[in-house]
Design a binder for these strands. Sequence first.
DNA 1: ATGTGATATGTTAGTGCTAACATCGTCACG
DNA 2: CGTGACGATGTTAGCACTAACATATCACAT
Lengths: 340, 340
Amino acid sequence: MIKLSDVAKRAGVSSMTVSRVINHPDKVSADTILRVQKAMEELQYVSNGPAKSLALGQTRILALLVPDITNPFFTTVARGAEDVARDAGYRLILCNTDENPQVEWNYLQMSRSRQVDGMIVSVCDDNSAAHLKVLPIDKVPVVLVDRKIPSEPYLDYVVGDNVLASEQLIDYLITKGHTRLGFVFGNPAVSVIRDRMAGVQRSLKRHDLIWRPDLCLTQARSPGDYRLITDDWIPRHHVTAIFAWNNLTAAHVYHLLVSHGYRVPDDVLVSCFDNPDPLSITNGFIPFVRQPAYDMGRNATIQLLERIAGSGRQGVVHQILVSQLVDRTLTPTTRIAEHR
Amino acid sequence: MIKLSDVAKRAGVSSMTVSRVINHPDKVSADTILRVQKAMEELQYVSNGPAKSLALGQTRILALLVPDITNPFFTTVARGAEDVARDAGYRLILCNTDENPQVEWNYLQMSRSRQVDGMIVSVCDDNSAAHLKVLPIDKVPVVLVDRKIPSEPYLDYVVGDNVLASEQLIDYLITKGHTRLGFVFGNPAVSVIRDRMAGVQRSLKRHDLIWRPDLCLTQARSPGDYRLITDDWIPRHHVTAIFAWNNLTAAHVYHLLVSHGYRVPDDVLVSCFDNPDPLSITNGFIPFVRQPAYDMGRNATIQLLERIAGSGRQGVVHQILVSQLVDRTLTPTTRIAEHR
DNA sequence: ATGTGATATGTTAGTGCTAACATCGTCACG
DNA sequence: CGTGACGATGTTAGCACTAACATATCACAT
C-alpha cells in the first residue's frame, strides 16, 4: 500500500508537506502543491483510514441502525440521513439489526470503539436501554429516531406524533361510521406501539366506545396468528375496520382479507401508519398516517452532527414531528392534503 | 476513553498482557486472566478500532454496495451476505449508491483506505469499471454480485442466469399464446439488462417472432414515460403481455394498467424478474423469474472471505446461479415448483 | 547591517494497539 | 546440581498519520 512517505519521497518533500497538501493546502506553496499532487496521482495514493482515524480521533462516518431494512419507512429515513450526512462530508453506513438485540449490541460497539463518529438508532425495543446506557461513558453521540426509550430521557430523539396521529386516525374511522374496530399491534416493548395504542384508547374513550382486548392482536408473528381476524373478528364480532400498527402489517392484513373474499375497503376497511402500498397496487384503498420519514432521518442526522460538533454543550433535544392523514379513497377535491 | 494501559495499570500487569487476554488467552495464566477481565469489566473497556486496525491491517468489516436499498431483491441479497459475514466473525455494513456512480466511487474508497476488509458490489453500471479497475492496485478483495462487468473479466462475480431465464420466461409466455409482447427495460449499460434482452431476443427468434423496438421502453424513469403502454401499445398494437426487467418496474406497470381499467392478467399479462409482490397483494397474478437473491449474497460473501483469507492464490471465480419460473396463477398441482 | 514578521518546510512526539523478541522463573531430568 | 526447555510476562518497535513545535528563508523596515 502506498503511504504518505512514498508520495513524499517521489515529490522530494517530507511526509508532513504531503499531509498538509491534503489537509491544509493553504499552508503550502502553489508549486509544491502541484508537485505533490502529481506524485499522488502517479502513485494512486489513498490515505490509510485507520491511521488517519487514530491520529485524528474521528472517522467522518455515521451509522444508521434500523430494525428492518426491508421496510420502506426505514429506507426513507435512511435517505434523509444520507443526504444530510453527505452534505456535511460524512459517509453514512446502514446496519440492519433485524429486530435482534444481540445484533444491535454488536453494531453499537462500533461507536464505542470509535469506528464511527456517531449513531442514529432506531432501537429494537426498550430493552436496548441497557446497551445504550453505556454509550455516555465514552461520550459517544447518539440520536434515537422513530422509537424512543422512556427510561432514558437524556437521549436525543426525533420521533413522530404517534399518540395524536393514531387518535386522529381512529377519530376519522369512527366519523366514517366504523364502531366495530379490530387492532393489530406488535411488541409493546416498542415505544411507537404503546403510543399508538394510547392514541387509540383516547379516541375510543372520547367516543364512548370500549376497548376490547379480544379484538386486538399484539404479538402476531406467523401468518397463522392472523387467522383470528377472518375466523372470529369479522364473522362473529362484525368488525368493519382494522387498524394495523404499521405498513407491512397492514399489507398482510389486506392480503388475508382479499384472499378470503372480502372486499377492501367496502366489506372491511384497513388502515395503518406509513404507506403500505407505495405503488398503489391496492389502488390506495388504505387510509394511512403518513409520517415524515425523510425528515426524521434528516433531522436526526442534523442533531447528531450538532452533538458531534458541539461536544456536549446543549441540553437534551426531543423532536416530535407531525404526521398527516392520507385517504386516497376520497375524491381529489375532498382528499386530505398530501405531498411528496 | 479507556485504553489498554488503563486496564493494565488497574490489573497490575503490562498492556501486552491485557492485549493477550483479549487475543490469545491461552498464553496467559488463569488467574491473571480473571484479574484482567475484572479490570476490563470495571472500566467498561472497549478497544479502539482504528488503533487495532492500524496495527493489524484489518478491520473485520465487510461492505455491501447496492444501487437501491429499497428493492427487496437487494435486501434479500443483504440478508444472505449478513448471515455469512456474521458467522465468520465479520460485520457487514450496507452502502446505498442510489445508482449514482459518484456516490459509489465515494464508498469504494473505503476499501482502498482499509476501512473495510473487502466489498461485495452490485455496480451502478458498466462505467463503474473505471473505479473498480484501481482496486487491484492495493489488492483490495472485491466480488461483484448480480451485475457483472464484461470489460473486467478478472473480477469474481456471482450472478443469475439472466439470458437463459429470460429466454425461458418468454418461451413460457409464447406457449401461453402471447405473441404481441411489450418490453420495459432499463439502462442497457447494466449487464442484467443486456442479458435479459439477449434472452428475450433468442426466444423470439426461435419462435419466428420479430423484435420490435417500438414495443420496448428502455430508459423509462418518470411515470409519464410509461404512458406509451396504455396510449399506444395496447390500443394500437394489441399487446397482450408485458415483460418488465425487474420487480419494481413490473409493479409500476401493473398499477398503470389497473388504474386504466385493464384487468391483469386477463386483459394484459405482466411478468418480470424477482418477486414484484412479496405480500401477494396482486394475488400473485404476475408470473416472474425468482432469482436466488439470498444465495447470491451468501455465495458472494463466501467467495469474498476466501479471497481475503487466500490472499490471491486462486483463479477468477464466476458463479452463475440458476433461477426459477414462478406462476401462481396456475393451480397448485400444475404450479411450477417453488420454495422459500 | 540588524531585527521582525511572515511564509514554507522539516522534525519530533504521540495516537492505541500488537508482533516479535527479550527476560525471568520454575521445573524436569541427566 | 547444572542446564535446557517451557510457561508467563515485559520491553521495544512499528503500523500511517497529524498537531505542535522548530527551523530556515526571505522581504522589508529601521
